[in-house]
Design a protein around this nucleic acid. Structure first.
Length: 583
DNA sequence: CTAGGGTTAG
């Protein structure tokens, strides 16, 4: 039985890889017993194959499987292959195991499912069926991996949940698998609900469970819970692994408590590049670009080598704070001093940096001159700059091209529609919205979360007149009142924004009367103690109309209102915003 | 040889 050749094996391996290949061959030829076969294989898979793992492992496998001593091949060996090979080869190893009429054991499926998790949905369901057939589906290791695999391979939360519901639910592993599944599927609110239930059931969260809940906090801006988790970690003496600290830093910073994030950072015995990056990103979100740059410099001084992600952090920090020349300098440093080749994300940061600062032409020139072809994200960020800086001509050109290239992407239509709205070209704007409707493309709904007494409430845009509950009516009445107060402070609707939202072909009630952040703020004003700061997290970027309204609401109600949107924090106080209207 | 988690441009 010869392991089928991979198409890319046809190509000669790079010379360093080729030498390794020769060594690998020589080793395998000397193999004569099962134990030495295993030893050699493990060695090859784990260490010797770094230079070109896929080619060399495929090579090793084909050699092993065409071995003149087939009796050496047992389940243990196949498990090793399934565990160590890249996912597609792991799957093939599993089918070879079956073809050889070997029986999978209880290690086989956890390994197999882990491989399935990073592949499209099909294999996960097949592996599940197979685990059922061989009687391993109720094994807790298999269940936990199944939950993970379903959610990771296809965001199939329903299947993950089905498995979860049939488990005994007594292990924190099972719960964090399900909590993680929710977060991955964009259901962080459900993740927090699960966390509550977990505690009600008396299952003690361990370090990994805490990490998975923290990522839900990051998502929803659940500051109180993030703080509670930090205290919980101290109290229950959960080991403060670097990963746990990094998750704490990330969550506290993304929830707006830069001080606490910094404190966790300072307490760490050894800070990794990830810890620094989490702090830098947090400062960037606050518009504290200078400090973010300072932290980056401190990292380099401390001898911690920046990686590509850290550079994304420092570049976005510069971009969001209008530090154009500073940012360009770091972009140069990345290559010249650290010898790193910028990726699309880095080029994207530069385009965004120039565009935000109003240098639309320079940004476009840069985007065209990039050595890699700019992707849709880059063009969209440039189009956004065109909208803000009054270059509808360029914005329109980009928008139309993006729609032609990727007709199923909602954000392209929204972008072009907004460009038209900004220049009051309602006719064209209407055409874009109708085109979107005809093609069945739906705009990602806006959603805002607010935490009251540790409980997170989520709001969608609405109020266009549906018959809701009494509580809902109360909130909408509060929005009306809030807007009256804002008007008294000088608010006037930003027409381009309001009209940008009108949905065609959605019925008359389709016009979303209030964006979710206005509703969330009203709810928080109703439910939180007088004078307390209001914190809202939104999944999209705040629009100019809400931005203006909330500034004045903060003044009228003498409240500090902290709104985190997709790109940064806005701290509204006394009628001004910490972003200085640059965002 | 078994499971869940861990920073990433707009």
């Amino acid at each position: 039985m010869v392991f089928p050749a991979e198409p890319h094996l046809e190509h000669p391996a790079p010379s360093r890889g080729r030498a390794a290949e020769q060594r690998c061959l020589a080793l395998l030829r000397r193999v004569s017993s099962l134990s030495s076969l295993l030893q050699t294989l493990t060695f090859l898979l784990k260490s010797g194959l770094q230079s070109n793992p896929l080619v060399l492992t495929s090579f090793a496998v084909s050699l092993v499987l065409s071995s003149p001593a087939p009796h050496l091949l047992d389940t243990f060996l196949f498990n090793t292959l399934i565990r160590s090979l890249p996912p597609p080869l792991a799957l093939r190893s599993f089918s070879l195991l079956l073809r050889r009429r070997l029986l999978p054991n209880r290690f086989t499926f956890p390994f197999l499912l882990k491989a399935c998790a990073s592949l499209p949905p099909g294999p996960t369901a097949q592996a599940h069926a197979s685990a059922l057939k061989f009687g391993f589906a109720a094994d807790s290791f298999v269940e936990n991996t199944l939950i993970h695999a379903y959610s990771a391979s296809s965001s199939d939360l329903a299947s993950a949940r089905k498995v979860f519901d049939r488990t005994p639910q007594t292990s924190p592993v099972t719960w964090s698998a399900m909590i993680g599944a929710c977060v991955r599927g964009g259901r962080s609110g459900d993740a927090l609900a699960l966390f509550r239930r977990m505690q009600e059931r008396g299952v003690r969260p361990d370090d990994v469970a805490v990490i998975s809940v923290l990522s839900a906090c990051s998502d929803l801006g659940a500051l109180e819970l993030a703080r509670w988790l930090r205290r919980y970690v101290e109290r229950s003496r959960i080991p403060k692994s670097p990963a746990l600290c990094n998750a704490l830093i990330d969550a506290l910073a993304k929830c707006g408590d830069a001080g606490a994030a910094r404190a966790v950072f300072d307490e760490m015995p050894r800070r990794t590049v990830v810890s620094y990056t989490a702090v830098i990103d947090g400062l960037a979100m606050q518009g504290r670009g200078r400090e973010a740059v300072g932290v980056f410099e401190g990292m380099v001084r401390a001898g911690v080598a920046p990686d590509d992600v850290a550079f994304i952090g420092v570049l976005t920090a510069c971009s969001h704070s209008g530090l154009v020349e500073e940012g360009l300098r770091w972009f140069g440093v990345m290559r010249e001093r650290f010898g790193m080749e910028p990726r699309m994300e880095h080029y994207g940061c530069v385009v965004d940096m120039l565009g935000r600062a109003g240098q639309v032409e320079r940004a476009e020139r840069f985007a065209r001159a990039m050595p890699v072809e700019a992707n849709a994200v880059v063009w969209r960020s440039l189009a956004a700059a065109c909208r803000v800086h009054g270059r509808p001509d360029v914005g329109e050109r980009i928008g139309r091209r993006l729609i032609a290239e990727e007709p199923a992407r909602d954000s392209h239509y929204v972008m072009l529609s907004n460009v038209y709205a900004a220049t009051r070209r309602w006719e064209e704007k209407g055409r874009v919205r109708r085109l979107m409707g005809r093609r069945g493309v739906r705009k990602e709904p806006g959603c805002s979360a607010v935490e009251i007494d540790g409980e997170v409430f989520e709001f969608a845009a609405g109020g266009g007149g549906g018959s809701g509950s009494e509580a809902e009516a109360e909130v909408y009445a509060m929005v009306e009142e809030m807007m009256r107060e804002a008007r008294r402070e000088g608010y006037e609707a930003v027409e381009a924004e309001v009209l940008a939202d009108v949905e065609e072909g959605d019925g008359e009630a389709g016009a979303l009367r209030w964006h979710s952040e206005k509703i969330a703020v009203a709810f928080a004003l109703l439910r939180s103690p007088r004078g307390a700061a209001v914190r809202v997290a939104k999944n999209l970027r705040v629009c100019a109309d809400c931005h203006l309204a909330i500034k004045l609401v903060a003044k009228a109600y003498a409240r500090e209102i902290v709104l985190r949107d997709r790109s940064r924090f806005h701290c509204f106080k006394d009628g001004i915003c910490s972003c200085g209207d640059f965002w």
